[in-house]
Simulated assay, not measured.
Amino acid sequence: MQIIYNLLFGLIIYLPAFVANGTAPFIREGTPIDRRKNFNDGRRILGDGKTFEGLLVGVTFGTTLGGIISRFLGIDWIFYSAIISASALFGDMLGAFIKRRLNIPRGGRALGLDQLDFILGASLAIFGLRISVTIYQFLFVAFVAFILHILTNYIAYRLKIKSVPW
């Protein structure tokens, strides 16, 4: 039972990252973070899918969840959740940057990178903030993120919210 509790607590630590990553794409129009500039390889730095408005919405929702977690766990999680949320979205932006360098267009598939870039970004913040996460918690969260990303994108495709199922 303790193992399950520990795994679920690891998931709670990462919940602001999940929420930030899941809410940012709801902003379909906005100001691209890369200001529509190209990198030295001639391709967009990030693309139109990464906007200042999406970043703000994602961090806001992730931080709000941190406030809710604070109420239930009795710890001040708001500051941590803001950093974790922002770092998750920066991880997602790094994933977009890598995809552009690999000449994968916006919406193109990059198995593994698409599902885990935000988890890696959040993990850097978690470790930097000296929040204790075991390797088992990290692997469990990565597994959940991988499966949820595939499942939710497929559902969004079936509901005609997304044009591709990944």
Rank of each mutant, 00 (worst) to 15 (best):
I98D: 11
P32Q: 07
L56N: 04
D117E: 13
G91P: 04
L102Q: 14
I69M: 06
A86E: 01
S70N: 11
D114F: 06
G42E: 04
I33V: 15
D34S: 10
G47Y: 06
Q115G: 06
I83A: 03
F127W: 13
G58F: 06
G62I: 03
R36K: 15
G62E: 03
R106V: 11
F61D: 01
D41A: 03
D117A: 15
R106H: 11
T23P: 00
A82Q: 07
Q115I: 08
G30E: 01
A82Y: 06
S70I: 06
D92W: 08
R106K: 13
T60W: 00
K37Q: 15
A125K: 08
F26P: 00
G107W: 05
A96K: 02
A24E: 01
F72D: 08
I135W: 14
A82W: 05
R36G: 09
G49I: 02
L124P: 03
W77I: 11
R43P: 05
I27T: 00
A88V: 12
L94V: 12
R71Q: 15
R71L: 15
R101A: 12
D92E: 10
L65F: 04
N40M: 12
T64E: 10
F90C: 11
F138K: 12
A125F: 07
L129S: 08
I126G: 06
R71S: 14
A110C: 15
D41C: 04
F138D: 03
I98N: 09
L56H: 03
I68K: 02
D34L: 09
S81D: 05
N40T: 14
A88W: 05
L116D: 04
M93T: 02
F118Q: 01
L124W: 04
G91E: 04
I135S: 12
V133T: 13
L94S: 09
M93K: 01
I135E: 13
L56S: 08
R100D: 05
I131S: 03
L139A: 13
Q137M: 11
P32D: 03
I78A: 08
D114M: 05
I119G: 01
V59P: 01
I83P: 00
L139G: 08
L129D: 08
T23M: 02
T60V: 02
L55S: 00
L65Y: 04
G95K: 13
T134M: 08
M93Q: 02
F97I: 05
R130A: 15
A125T: 06
I126E: 03
L116K: 12
L94C: 11
L116H: 10
R36A: 12
G108E: 10
L55T: 00
E53C: 00
G112Q: 09
D76W: 13
T64N: 11
R109D: 10
S70T: 13
T51Q: 00
S81E: 05
I84Q: 02
R35L: 13
